[in-house]
Design a protein around this nucleic acid. Structure first.
Ligand SMILES: NC(=O)c1ccc[n+]([C@@H]2O[C@H](COP(=O)([O-])OP(=O)(O)OC[C@H]3O[C@@H](n4cnc5c(N)ncnc54)[C@H](O)[C@@H]3O)[C@@H](O)[C@H]2O)c1
Ligand SMILES: NC(=O)c1ccc[n+]([C@@H]2O[C@H](COP(=O)([O-])OP(=O)(O)OC[C@H]3O[C@@H](n4cnc5c(N)ncnc54)[C@H](O)[C@@H]3O)[C@@H](O)[C@H]2O)c1
Lengths: 208, 208
DNA sequence: GCTACATTGTGCGCGCGTGCGCAATCACGA
DNA sequence: TCGTGATTGCGCACGCGCGCACAATGTAGC
């Protein structure tokens, strides 16, 4: 019941949740930490330790009830409600994000999409009317959104982030290749394939 | 000169490299660990410690020569050469990846793109002729590629990964929402926006 | 109801990553 | 040439996360 739960632990919980979701769809009722760990490449002890931060969800001799544990995790992570998101930047990547069918089933909904290109503003992409980014603040006053997605080029990304922060967004998913700055109360996660590639090359550069 | 360099360190080096790239473009000749740290949200000690794993690149009393340090990092990470990549899955996301202009300047080149949809095979996307995924192995025998990008749905992703591994790919960038399995000598990094969102909600769910 | 078995929950130690603090070192100006 | 000031490189200690190992606890079968 410590107040300080390591961030690595929080990052693993959604991974467990996804595996449980799959097991549930397959009709499995119970699973033990051993099997769950094998599926995810994590040690069973790690899983049990992570879960023990939040309570006792398993039964000795049997394991974990899949549906029960999934519910608990969703509760812990705040996934029992819907989350509203705004997207800024409707280029190639922005369109893929708007079309992506992986957000909604998890309770993440894009409620508005913005760009600054006059040729794009006013068009409809996957059912979303694209609005001028100038109206971001006004829109967020009317329809609240807790999460912002940044899919603009690096040069304009920090400005977009600042606007989002000023409008009360609490978390930002940043696709732009910059070291984004935000106040401590706003969570940021970066999605950066180039950084991922540039670190993998270190390990494969001298291979065979 | 320890053989075991922590993976977190390797993950930070590209971040340093990107900042140095920017400084170099701005004409800066030297930078100290203090300023570099401020720009990136990292402590100066961390930067100096990370670099000390590989050598002594700075000068006391002055700092680091920007161009020199950037070269050293590129050398360390294996970024002084070109890397060939294959993409499998030319859907919405795959198209954004093919169109992305952020890979080439860093030396990452997509040399072939595959799909299994007859309506997509044979078409040209951003200068790339889309090939049937059945020809993946044959193509990789002819034109070698060290890196694979997976942009197919989760259900077929593991199969694609297995094919890539069998064809000698050494690193995989996986966009599919699965816990991907690969032999230890193949590096994998996952890009997963949903997991990122699902962990951020933990921190913002009880805010104000 | 009792026994045998399986699996959890967790105390504990180990190892690793982080950052402090300082000595070593370099540039520069007098 | 020497002194001053700045900044690196790194030894060291602290703290945290990981996983072992076992006691606690529940299940199932007889
Ligand atoms: N395409 C990819 O696969 C990919 C992958 C990883 C990261 N990224 C990053 O994601 C971002 C977008 O990439 P993309 O390929 O879609 O680029 P893109 O050029 O196709 O789209 C960018 C869009 O942002 C809009 N825009 C620019 N400044 C804006 C502003 N201030 N306010 C609102 N809209 C603005 C532009 O009008 C354009 O529509 C970039 O930062 C890129 O580095 C892209
Ligand atoms: N669109 C996004 O923003 C986004 C974001 C994050 C992750 N993802 C993930 O990336 C993947 C692709 O997403 P998408 O939106 O482009 O989906 P999509 O359905 O638009 O495209 C998938 C493509 O993969 C092809 N494909 C399917 N099985 C294949 C196989 N075995 N071999 C070769 N090609 C095959 C399909 O023909 C299709 O063209 C999914 O796993 C998705 O979860 C997408």
């Amino acid at each position: 019941m410590a107040l300080e739960i390591p961030e690595v632990v929080i990052d693993r919980l959604p991974v467990y949740g996804r595996a449980l979701d799959l097991l549930k769809q397959q009709g499995r009722e119970v699973v033990n930490s051993q099997e769950l760990g094998e599926r995810l490449g994590v040690t069973p002890a790690q899983i049990r330790k992570d879960l023990s931060y939040f309570g006792r969800f398993g039964k000795q001799g049997r394991g974990y009830n899949v549906a029960r544990l999934l519910d608990e995790l969703n509760q812990i992570l705040g996934l029992t409600r819907e989350w509203s998101m705004v997207l800024v930047g409707v280029g190639q990547l922005g369109r893929a994000i708007l079309a992506y069918d992986g957000f909604t089933p998890q309770g993440f909904r894009i409620i508005a999409a913005f760009d600054d290109d006059p040729n794009i503003i006013g068009t409809t992409v996957d059912g979303h009317l694209i609005t001028s980014v100038d109206e971001l603040a006004a829109t967020l006053l009317e329809r609240h959104a807790e999460i912002g997605i940044v899919a603009v080029p690096g040069a304009t990304a920090q400005g977009v982030i600042d606007s989002m922060v000023a409008s009360g967004v609490k978390a930002i998913l940043n696709y732009a290749p910059i070291a984004a700055q935000a106040p401590p109360h706003v969570r940021i996660k970066d999605i950066d394939p180039v950084l991922a590639l540039q670190s993998m090359t270190f390990y494969i550069k001298d291979q065979d």
